[in-house]
């Protein structure tokens, strides 16, 4: 088993009830696997927020970071996770 820390931002905090929590995963679990487990815990509202309408991809502009790096720069949703990593699930952010 591996343990990763999940940090969620913006409207997701209301859904998960906490901005930071940990999840225990089977070794080799990918981002896809992580999200599926999270949806089991936090239900349809989280899935509706994070995924596109068809449930096939992230919602537009949603970003997932692994240790601060966009998973798009790795293997996107198929990137395998490692013990101790920090995963940010981020809605679009803006400002200045």
């Amino acid at each position: 088993m591996i343990t990763v820390t999940i940090k969620v931002l913006g409207p997701l905090i209301k859904i998960t009830g906490a901005s930071t929590f940990t999840m225990d995963l089977v070794e080799g679990t990918t981002i896809w696997g992580l999200l599926e487990q999270a949806f089991e815990v936090y239900g349809e509202p989280m899935k509706a927020e994070v995924m596109n309408g068809a449930g096939t991809d992230l919602a537009p502009y949603y970003i997932i970071l692994i240790n601060g790096r966009n998973c798009m720069l790795m293997h996107y949703m198929d990137t395998p996770l490692k013990d101790g990593q920090v995963i940010h699930i981020m809605p679009p952010a803006a400002g200045g």
Binding site: K7, L9, P91, P92, A93, G95
Partner: peptide, 24 residues
């Protein structure tokens, strides 16, 4: 557009704090 329709109205420009921190 999510930036102008959701994030900025809901959280103001300070919506960036957590995001910028996540990116280091």
């Amino acid at each position: 557009h999510p930036a102008t329709a959701q994030l900025m109205p809901d959280y103001g420009t300070a919506c960036l704090v957590n995001g910028m921190n996540a990116f280091g």
